[in-house]
Design a protein around this nucleic acid. Sequence first.
DNA 1: GTCCAATTTGTACAACTGTACAAATTGGAG
DNA 2: CTCCAATTTGTACAGTTGTACAAATTGGAC
Lengths: 217, 217
Amino acid sequence: MRQNLREALLRNAVTLFSRSGYNAVSLRDIAKASGANVGSLTYHFGSKAKLLREVYERHTVPMNARRRELLGEALRISDADQRLMAILRAYVVPAFVSSSEGDGGGAEFTRMRAVLSAEGNPDAQAIIADAFDETSRAFIKALADCVPGASLSGLVWRSQFLLGSLYYALINPDRVTRLSGGAVDGNDREAAVNQIVEASYASFRNLRVEARQYAAT
Amino acid sequence: MRQNLREALLRNAVTLFSRSGYNAVSLRDIAKASGANVGSLTYHFGSKAKLLREVYERHTVPMNARRRELLGEALRISDADQRLMAILRAYVVPAFVSSSEGDGGGAEFTRMRAVLSAEGNPDAQAIIADAFDETSRAFIKALADCVPGASLSGLVWRSQFLLGSLYYALINPDRVTRLSGGAVDGNDREAAVNQIVEASYASFRNLRVEARQYAAT
DNA sequence: GTCCAATTTGTACAACTGTACAAATTGGAG
DNA sequence: CTCCAATTTGTACAGTTGTACAAATTGGAC
């Protein structure tokens, strides 16, 4: 009767983790959502931490592959400004769009990553550290070439803000709707991608003239 | 022997919540950190949710008061660009710097807010919704006046990214250090404030010319 | 000193957690 | 059909959770 329980468990794990975090979701919750028994989870994955590790790698690997692919295309653009824009899209789009076949979209997984990084759970921290994204360094390098004269500090901080913007857009989209009095839809992901790319384009572009001075303190 | 247990419990609650989130921290953890018994928490606060509510309001109220104060000062600047910069600082600085007397700094509380919003805990969600920051609307209004012609969508999304950048800078400062190969210190909060203000200044400033077109998709 | 309300402690409770493992079920190979 | 390994179920376990409440302790008013 059951098609592929293992896959269903993995899918539901992402959904529940992305919604409530790692701590608040019990193995029984995942089992129940999949119409299965608790034991099936220990059978397939051994432990909760190993389940998370599997979920993580399952999505991270193809997403970063897609990022590198798009980065390669972007690097063929000669105009620095257009290249900068393309590089940013190459980083952002795979985080929002599904990178593998049957999963519920990359956005759900990215939201999960956002929640996990905030929770600071030791299991999750270890997994994130192990799967450290070497791709990010490649992006920083590519971005640096678009903005000659930019300081390393400026580049790294702005790419940190890029990721923070990405995460928070997925974590709390309703705030956008609320803050605009309903005029802007925070759950419109295509709009979110465009806005993130636009905003960070401006912030990186601004590094080109590094003469600005802070006001005080 | 005990000076003021109630205050100590509140302080330790912020510290622990900001470090591991709401779910992962037990009342016994908070009691132990304060050298007290579990019962003292139910006595003083009634329940875990009410404890969180008290923590939240304790910090939120003075922080927003300080923001409004600094916003008022900023609005007296006539030059639009300088005013924009001052408004951004008025929003960011109180989130990093202690707003009341004896607590461990506003950064710790802001980090807690970041973690709570990510966790999506129902108790926390309700508290955050109740204490909805009307101040944010005042800031959007002020920002709009600095960037004539900007769309509401652009303003709201960029202020969303501002908050996301703020949160992620506090949640995962080590990523900055790691990504820069140790050359940039992610835990340097003064630098973080300056970078956030600089970056979002550029992103808001960019709204003034709203002629840019997206590349594709 | 006495007294009493405020505070703090200790303990008990039911509910839930991750994990372990024996028993039952399944489904394809021979 | 038989057989057997893979899978799924059911259950038990020790540990932890938030909450409730009686008992002990504190410390200032008189």
